[in-house]
């Protein structure tokens, strides 16, 4: 196996990011090196080739740029620092993210930011089905459209969609908030449109700014839980 060295041990660290070329180095060595990285370091990954589990489990304040497309679970369980993917990302982008930022310049496949507990996930393009499924506090901003069953069982956090949302948006949603600028194909069980008040406009403006977007918060609609299915009740038996 190729052994990667930490940036301070390389000549290139003095004048730029550590470059890891995945055309030659295995993903295992990349992740091992990232797990040992120190705060403040910059890493650039070239020739990612859609490989899976790139830059997963990062636990230091590093800045990582993946130049190209990533496969499944890119930046999975991300904890600190920033990961930017200049291409598209596969299934389970930034799944269970805890904090920090993950930014995809292209599109993301299904289950983007699934179960994320915190942090910010920005997708400039479209996201597939189940975007934000079981989200638990993560903020997600999608520049384009999202697929069906997005924010399914979403527990906490904010999902912002600047394009359109697919079928069954927010099915069985708990306390997460959803903002959609375009159309919603259909709402899932117990998800309703809610009034857009000043506090919502303010948080939406913050989220859009954090994602580097210029959309007008007043153009969005807000969706959330009707809280009718929080308790098992005989009268709800046909709601599911």
């Amino acid at each position: 196996m190729v052994t990667l060295t930490a940036p301070e041990a390389t000549a290139r660290a003095l004048d730029g990011p550590t470059v890891v070329d995945l055309a030659g180095a295995p993903v295992r060595d990349l992740n091992q090196a990232l797990h040992q990285a120190a705060d403040g370091q910059s890493w650039t990954i070239t020739n990612p080739g859609g490989k899976h589990s790139l830059a997963v489990g990062i636990n230091s304040d590093v800045s990582v740029t993946i130049e190209g497309h990533a496969g499944y679970y890119a930046a999975g369980m991300h904890q600190k620092g920033t990961v930017k993917i200049t291409g598209n990302a596969g299934v389970g982008l930034a799944e269970n993210i805890m904090s920090g930022t993950v930014h995809v310049e292209g599109d993301a496949s299904q289950s983007a930011a699934a179960t994320g507990h915190g942090g910010l996930v920005v997708i400039d393009g479209n996201a597939g089905a189940r975007c934000g499924i079981s989200m638990k506090g993560v903020d997600i901003v999608v520049g384009g459209n999202i697929g069906h069953m997005s924010a399914f069982m979403a527990q906490a956090g904010r999902l912002v969609v600047c394009g359109d949302a697919g079928d069954a948006l927010g099915d069985s949603i708990y306390e997460a908030r959803i903002y959609v600028k375009g159309s919603v194909a259909s709402l899932g069980a117990d998800c309703i449109e809610k009034p857009l008040k000043a506090e919502h406009l303010a948080e939406l403006a913050d989220l859009l700014a954090a994602a580097g977007r210029t959309d007008n918060p007043a153009d969005f609609k807000r969706y959330g839980s009707a809280r009718n299915l929080y308790h098992f009740h005989v009268d709800n038996s046909t709601a599911y």
């Binding site: 993903v27 295992r28 992740n31 589990s53 997963v56 499944y72 389970g92 179960t115 499924i133």
Partner: peptide, 23 residues
């Protein structure tokens, strides 16, 4: 599971967990 379906995905998921925990 919210982010995988079937044995082919599970193989990738196991790979991710191994990567996070350094095998």
């Amino acid at each position: 599971h919210p982010d995988w379906t079937g044995p082919d995905d599970l193989e990738i998921k196991i790979g991710e967990l191994r990567e996070i925990t350094d095998w």
